[in-house]
Design a protein around this nucleic acid. Structure first.
Length: 112
DNA sequence: AGGGTGACTGCTA
DNA sequence: GTAGCAGCCACCC
């Protein structure tokens, strides 16, 4: 656990994530480009250690497969349906398979 | 200082 | 269309 403070890298990730408007989602890769990171796994790592939990719209981040994976699809598991509903509430619709229904909800890049 | 992990991605079989 | 392998970066022990 260790409530350590986020590093500059992580802070940048969270900040970029906050720049994502509601009703839109971005892939780990896109978010990485926003912070100057070429690796999406590093982004996932930052999210995994996400000290801001629900404060940061981590549910707004999805894999490049446009499919809900990892955190929203397995770990929480029992709450996955809730997360999906939450995204729909923001304007992001997902299929029963967990795929992004409307690709228009995907943000090609993070705004300033 | 070194090794292992992971909420990922892309290519190939 | 599904499955497996390798590459990648940052954090943790």
């Amino acid at each position: 656990m260790t409530d350590r403070e986020p590093t500059v890298f992580e802070s940048g990730v969270y900040e970029a994530l906050c720049r994502v408007p509601a009703g839109k989602v971005v892939t780990y890769k896109t978010l990485g480009q926003a912070v100057g990171c070429r690796s999406a796994q590093a982004i996932g790592n930052a999210m995994r250690r996400n000290p801001f939990a629900p404060e940061v719209p981590c549910h707004r981040v999805i894999p490049a497969t446009l499919k809900i994976g990892g955190f929203l699809g397995e770990v929480i598991g029992s709450s996955i349906d809730k997360k999906r509903d939450l995204l729909e509430a923001e304007g992001v619709a997902f299929d029963t398979q967990g795929n992004l229904m409307d690709k228009a909800c995907l943000l090609d890049e993070v705004p300033e």
